[in-house]
Amino acid sequence: MSGQTLTDRIAAAQYQLTGSDVARAVCKATTHEVMAPKKKHLEYLISTTNETNVNIPQMADTLFERSTNASWVVVFKALTTTHHICIYGNERFIQYLASRTSLFNLSNFIDKTGTHGYDMSTFIRRYARYLNEKAYAYRAMAFDFTRVKKGAEGVMRTMATEKLLKAMPALQTQVDTLLEFDVHPKDLNNGIINAAFMLLFKDLIKLFASYNDGIINLLEKYFKMKKSECKDSLEIYKKFLTRVTKIAEFMKIAEQVGVDKNDIPDISYAPSSILESLETHMNSLEGKKG
């Protein structure tokens, strides 16, 4: 499996003949070599997303086309390349993904050519679901939760109640889909899945920061909300408590596979007294005792 195959070379040559440097770079980033997409090809694709004359739909379409390959290697690299451009490229790229009627259709993908391909197919299906969800969240909110400003003046901290109650479930679903990648250190046994894991780790850090900001905003507004809004907020907060544990577990895996401790945020647990206060307030609105 090592080295570029004849198919890889022919595909790259075809794109070169049609004059599409972008499609050729996509092809080069998604060869049959069992290694992460090469840095030089990723950097070229990222730089082109900032050029006004570059055809973003064509770049995305070539990546979607590569994801229909029968080889787990090519498909996984197409997903990893797409994710890399979502994180580091111009926002126009994810805007285009969000505008598409169809995204990655890999829920039934399976490479039966060997045990390794069979194992990796599971992660490909999960990864594709996450990337689709990332685009759906952008479509719903018109922004990327990983890219928005964080902290006291950030988007999630200053959002109005109505929009916040729409944003939080979308954010929770994206976090859930990322955590469903459900990888263990023993599974991180090749350059491609390792690259995917690191991109997911980077996304999760930023998603958690947005999630935390949203929860702080929710708690600050909670005691002034209408009963129906309090009910929704209480459910969001309960879900947050269960997800904090899962996020901490994901971060532990990152530490086990060599991510620097300083790069891993401290996932602190909220005291149960907060939940008790929220529930007491909810009960008082519903006229219950206790």
Rank of each mutant, 00 (worst) to 15 (best):
His116Gly: 05
Phe104Tyr: 15
Lys224Val: 00
Thr18Asn: 10
Ser2Gln: 09
Glu279Cys: 06
Thr115Ala: 10
Glu65Arg: 15
Lys166Asn: 14
Val183Ala: 11
Thr18Arg: 12
Gln174Glu: 15
Ala167Lys: 07
Ala23Glu: 12
Ser107Asn: 11
Pro169Gln: 02
Ser71Gln: 12
Lys224Glu: 02
Asn262Phe: 03
Lys149Met: 09
Leu131Asp: 01
Asn262Val: 03
Phe93His: 11
Asn50Thr: 07
Lys206Ser: 09
Thr31Asn: 06
Cys230Thr: 02
Asp61Phe: 13
Asn55Ile: 01
Gly89Ala: 08
Leu131Glu: 02
Met59Cys: 12
Ala142Trp: 04
Ile56Val: 14
Ile247Leu: 06
Asn69Ala: 15
Asn189Arg: 10
Thr280Cys: 09
Thr68Gln: 15
Met120Ser: 09
Pro185Asn: 04
Cys27Gly: 00
Asp232Ser: 14
Ile192Leu: 11
Gly287Trp: 05
Leu285Ile: 01
Thr177Pro: 05
Leu97Gly: 07
Tyr136Ser: 05
Val54Pro: 11
Asp187His: 15
Leu17Tyr: 11
Lys261Gln: 08
Leu6Ser: 13
Ser67Asp: 03
Phe223Leu: 03
Thr52Gln: 14
Glu51Phe: 04
Gly114Gln: 04
Leu45Met: 07
Asn189Thr: 02
Ser71Arg: 13
Tyr237Cys: 02
Ile193Lys: 12
Ile253Pro: 08
Met168Gln: 07
Arg129Ile: 00
Leu278Met: 14
Ala195Ser: 09
Gly214Asn: 00
Gly114Met: 02
Lys252Asp: 09
Ala254Glu: 00
Lys112Phe: 04
Leu241Glu: 10
Gly258Ala: 06
